[in-house]
Design a protein around this nucleic acid. Structure first.
Lengths: 358, 358
DNA sequence: CTGAAAGCGCTTACAG
DNA sequence: CTGAAAGCGCTTACAG
């Protein structure tokens, strides 16, 4: 934009483009005080409609945007949101957390906030580095996506920084969380299988620090009972649960183990898609046909599930929406920190694919 | 940290923890002026060793960190780096760009800089949104990862903002780029195949806006010629190149097409792992055994390659390092904008797996 | 080598 | 409803 020099700041002109038009300049052009311009900018306080529209039109005309650092300094707010994620989650092959990040960034725009990203060591590392920005002078609040070391959460709480966890929770702590509705998802799966007259339904899962994993197994039991299949729900022959992080290996080992116990198994619900992939692999080796011999279902709807052989029935998790909701909730907390904490469950959706359709 | 009240700012005490210790406080405690503290902080100018260590010890003791916004306002530098990536790249299933982001974030810490993330529409969208932070008052420089619309690059250049592209380049523009050494990778592949006495080596690739894709084909031709296989390198029967974004489908179609032309094909180099996966799938359907009947090689080393059936020989790209190098280069440019532009090639490494070992 | 002082561009009571 | 003024916490010539 080319401008006529109207104030002393305007002599720093570079290639004809003026940098650094300030609130003073706007005030001068509009013939009002800087306070008034500031009031118009923030939408706070009372400004007459006439003045407001005059000032606004000049702001628009000159494409003026207040300088963040000056605003931050004066208002003692940063307009920044911290986004903390463990490095293993961030660089995982599935884009699960990346999409949550994407959603958060999208929503942050609505508040003119910036996302400051920091990866931290995974939960298993002893030496935890505290993200640099983790103090109230650099961020207004923080989002934690996925599991991190509980000490980090405690640190954030102690510092009184507004925080929202997405896809993570710590039992016994009063945390604001955005979670997916695991019970709903599992219920949909069981319902889908039962509707096809399958009842001999196994469950394969790992143990994990992550609450979702446990929830899915309890969801399986509840849903099975709902359909009058409590005997199977309680029969450990039908279950394979090991104390390991979920992996394809667990799927392979699991389906083999359950099939050894239950020769006429009709379907197996895997705690997530990764496990389901391992399951498929083993069944292929065992020469069992999916879905005809046995139906396989996963959870999460990772990218690979749709192109697996056969494509895997799974539960879709709206990741972008979780990120969006996380920022929304965080902004509420920043606005008014003295709220009761909330756990928000985001609905999920069954995606029927070949692996479970007989 | 608990502090004794020593200046007027200290009356804003919250739950016994003092917020907002300032440079003034440090100066007062150390018995020097704020200028001196500032000089110690920045490491610029001359301060006697004695004063320096005294001030530093007080900074350490009180764990003082200057307020970014104040620093930014006074120095007219932001300490922020913009990181721009198209939303399709960011949410891609492979963690390719996420790892570049991770590396950038890691390196940014060394400069005490923050990464401001912004996703933009993919290259194909007509209505391009300019990232909010894209002006010199909010960031010191910007990294662009992967392909984006060329208008965005032009905009950045026009604004005179230091910029480094990672894994992207635009022909004919004087851009600082961090690229992987595609020719090196392909050379390693061909060498690996030739060492096993394979010479009938095909190539499957898509066309793309991305320079790497074209480079890999030319790399194939150069490497083949190097080993005296120029006849094959020039024989289109051995090649399948279509004007589509790379996908598993291209791999499937490609290997079928080339095999129709060349019955005794010994190996096929796929432009990337995704293509190689499609290739594997089709060969399985055709009842061709990999690697015994035909060797298959990919490029990129995406996560799935290691667990594919069989695991795919590929070229590993050090993504974290590309992110690190991008920030390093950007910081050089911010320091001294009037440099000749550079294209930095990051070395890659062949990962030998079953799919190509006869 | 060090200090006093101006200034960065905003916001926010306060007075009118 | 609007303006004058102080202040946010730094940096940076400048003077000594």
């Amino acid at each position: 934009m080319y401008l006529i020099i109207i104030s002393k700041r305007f002599d720093n002109i570079i290639i004809g483009v003026c940098l650094g038009i300030t609130i003073k300049d706007i005030a001068k052009i509009a013939g009002v005080s800087t306070s008034t311009v500031s009031l118009v900018l923030s939408g706070k306080g009372y400004v007459s409609d006439q003045t407001k529209s005059k000032v606004q039109s000049i702001i628009d005309e000159y494409n003026y945007r207040p300088l963040r650092s000056a605003r931050q300094l004066a208002s003692n707010k940063t307009g920044n949101i911290g986004f903390i994620i463990s490095d293993v989650h961030l660089s995982r092959s599935e884009s699960f957390y990346t999409r949550i990040l994407l959603g958060a960034e999208l929503e942050a725009r609505n508040y003119d906030a910036y996302i400051l990203l920091s990866s931290v060591g995974s939960i298993s590392e002893k030496k935890q580095i505290i993200p640099r920005f983790l103090n109230a002078r650099e961020i207004d609040g923080v989002i934690v996506a996925g599991s991190v070391h509980v000490d980090l959460i405690k640190h954030i709480m102690k510092e009184n920084i507004p925080v929202v966890l997405i896809d993570y929770d710590v039992m016994g702590m009063k945390l604001n969380t955005i979670l997916m509705d695991n019970h709903l998802g599992i219920k949909q799966i069981v319902s889908h299988l039962v509707a096809q007259k399958m009842t001999k339904i196994g469950f394969i899962g790992g143990s994990s620090t992550h609450p979702s994993i446990k929830e899915r197994f309890s969801g399986y039991q509840i849903a099975m009972e709902f359909y009058g299949l409590e005997k199977i729900a309680r029969n450990t022959q039908y279950h394979y649960i090991v104390e390991k992080e979920t992996s394809t290996e667990i799927g392979s080992d699991g389906v083999e183990a359950v099939l050894t116990n239950v020769k006429d198994l009709e379907a197996v619900i895997c705690v997530n898609d990764t496990t389901a992939i391992g399951c498929l692999k083993k069944l292929d080796e065992m020469n069992k046909k999916v879905p005809n011999d046995i139906a396989v279902v996963g959870f999460d709807d990772i990218n690979y599930s749709a192109i697996a052989q056969p494509p895997i029935t799974t539960v879709h998790v709206p990741k972008i929406e979780m990120g969006v909701e996380g920022v929304k909730r965080l902004m509420e907390l920043i606005e008014n920190p003295n709220q009761l904490y909330q756990k928000r469950l985001i609905p999920v959706e069954l995606v029927e694919r070949i692996s479970s359709i007989k």
